[in-house]
């Protein structure tokens, strides 16, 4: 019943890379990148979240295929919420 092909070393390495990415976010915040500061911060956050979802939450290699569909639909609806709301608020000044 050896369900996990992933070794403890892999998880620890993943944990360490998540900590390194946190340090990179903090470091990048102090460098003036103009409009790219929030872009970099969100990009790193998304990389971290993706690593957690795929490997810590076992979505990659899940035996139940519906799981991936539910996860993707969740983020899809979140995207609808954020993109459509911002499309409204950011274009209100346009006449």
């Amino acid at each position: 019943m050896s369900e996990h092909a992933t070794s403890r070393g892999f998880y620890v390495a993943l944990g360490i890379s998540l900590l390194v990415l946190t340090a990179v976010t903090v470091g990048a915040a102090f460098v003036n990148l103009g409009p790219f500061n929030p872009v970099i911060a969100l990009l790193i956050a998304t990389i971290k979240a993706t690593l957690v979802v795929l490997f810590f939450m076992h979505v990659k290699g899940a035996s139940e295929k519906m799981t991936a569909a539910v996860v993707i639909s969740g983020f899809f609806f979140l995207a609808i919420l954020l993109v459509l709301s911002m499309a409204d608020y950011l274009t209100r000044a346009w006449r």
């Binding site: 976010t25 903090v26 915040a29 500061n37 911060a41 969100l42 971290k48 979240a49 957690v52």
Partner: peptide, 9 residues
């Protein structure tokens, strides 16, 4: 993970 950069940074 998202709250930290959005609020603190």
């Amino acid at each position: 993970i998202y709250l930290f950069p959005l609020l603190y940074l």
